[in-house]
Amino acid sequence: MSSATQGQSGPTDKFPVIKFVSIAIISLVIVSPLFLLIVASLKPDRFQILAEMGSFKAFIVTNPTLKNYGDILTFSGNQPFARYLVNSVIVLTFTLLGGMLFNSMAAFVLAWGRLPGRAIILTLMIGLYIVPQESIVLPLLNIMNNLGLADSFAAQILPFWASPLYVFLLYQFFSQIPRDLYDAAVVDGASPFEIYWKVFLPISLPALATVAILLGIETWNQYLWPLLVTQSNYARPISVGIAGFFGADSIYWNLAMSASVVMMAPVLAFYLMFQKWFVSSVISSGVKG
């Protein structure tokens, strides 16, 4: 009985081999670099890594060691890797806190405030989203320097507290909340801020999670901006720190590899913990907008 129903239950089930092979290829393409990275980070000698890179030996380690992970902490004395990691976490935390707050507040006002010229602001904002971030980097750098924020945490955090994409994402979500719910809160005596804080935010957790995840990944992986804005180790994040292993005279592959693993590990762990949220956030940001 089960075989009879199985055969008719849909096109995807008709070609299990194709399904299996395509999933295998996709996972191979995505997983093999990660695997290669982890394997390489366990090899003690940077020349060995380079020599084996072209062959299947790249995927095998015969003499595994954690020495690289120890070395990145003390590399040439002026590469305080632990510091970069802490810096990245600080930037991430404050970018997320401010970003969630300001983006959602802006979205709330755009969706429900009695704001003159709301449509114009929305249009302008979507226009802003089309402008690539790279093109505003230099004027922004100028502003930061003039504000005396060069080489600071603030310079890495403040510009990312407002993003047209996230404002728009949350605006979309907030506008779908029924008018009656807002009105019920008004009749119950809630102020606009209380409605935002006590009603809208709690029922928008899925949308907020989406924004937190996307903004979090974006912040963690920032490279160009912190590279330009940090001149010393004081506020330099891990992404820029890794670049330090690619010296002018030599490239410390072994250390770069293990540093990359350290940078990636929290993201991976986080992903595995909140896999469901991640998937739905990507779906909702992509499909529903």
């Binding site: 019920a184 009603v199 709690p202």
Partner: peptide, 20 residues
């Protein structure tokens, strides 16, 4: 006056309960 200052309470067609 604001709705809450008018001494009125309203029941909506959609119930409008706070879902959380």
């Amino acid at each position: 006056l604001d709705p809450s200052e008018r001494g009125v309470a309203m029941v909506f067609q959609s119930y409008a309960l706070y879902p959380h």
